Simulated assay, not measured.
Amino acid sequence: MASAAFEEIVEDFEFLDDWEDRYRYVIEQGKAMDPLDDALKVPATKVDGCASQVWLYPHIDEGVFRFDGDSDAMIVRGLIAVLRKLYNGLPVADVLKVDARAEMERLGLNEHLSSQRSNGLRAMIERIRLVAGETV
């Protein structure tokens, strides 16, 4: 139940044979993302459970879920960009239907992230689901 934008990442990953190329790809996704406004980097948007600093700013417009985010670590910023492709533009009710763990496994990311990064990724997904759940 992934978005078309996420499916593009899955297709791109199929052409990248080794993890280093995939790692660089994820980092490039993060670099291409607009930075989060410093005014939004507040305790309410900070995600606990991440080894690096992470902020997620969700907003729902006419029932459509979107979020912006940022991190002080390039790989985490890239993971935020990947999650944005997975969730942004979905109806809020559909956010809760996404099996993010399974979708990320399609990219092979779970097996190549450190335990701290995996925990951080889970924390980001939990925050996204929490916000969407509060508005459904």
Rank of each mutant, 00 (worst) to 15 (best):
E11V: 07
P91G: 12
M33E: 13
E8F: 10
L90V: 02
D68R: 11
V42H: 02
A102I: 07
S114N: 10
V82A: 10
D17N: 15
P35N: 08
L79S: 03
G120N: 06
V64E: 05
V82F: 13
G108N: 09
E105Y: 06
D61K: 07
I80G: 00
V42I: 15
M124G: 05
L109G: 00
S118Q: 08
E7A: 15
L90Q: 03
K85Q: 12
V54H: 00
L109Y: 01
I80Q: 00
A73F: 03
V64M: 11
V64H: 04
R106T: 07
R129C: 07
H59Y: 13
L109S: 02
D38S: 15
Q29C: 01
F67G: 00
F67N: 01
A4M: 07
R66I: 01
S118M: 06
C50I: 09
E7W: 12
V54P: 01
A44H: 07
L96V: 11
S118V: 09
H112Q: 10
P35E: 13
N119H: 11
L83P: 03
K46D: 04
A100P: 06
S114K: 08
R84P: 02
I125A: 06
L83G: 00
A4C: 03
W55Q: 00
Q29G: 02
S3C: 13
G78D: 08
G89F: 01
V26Y: 11
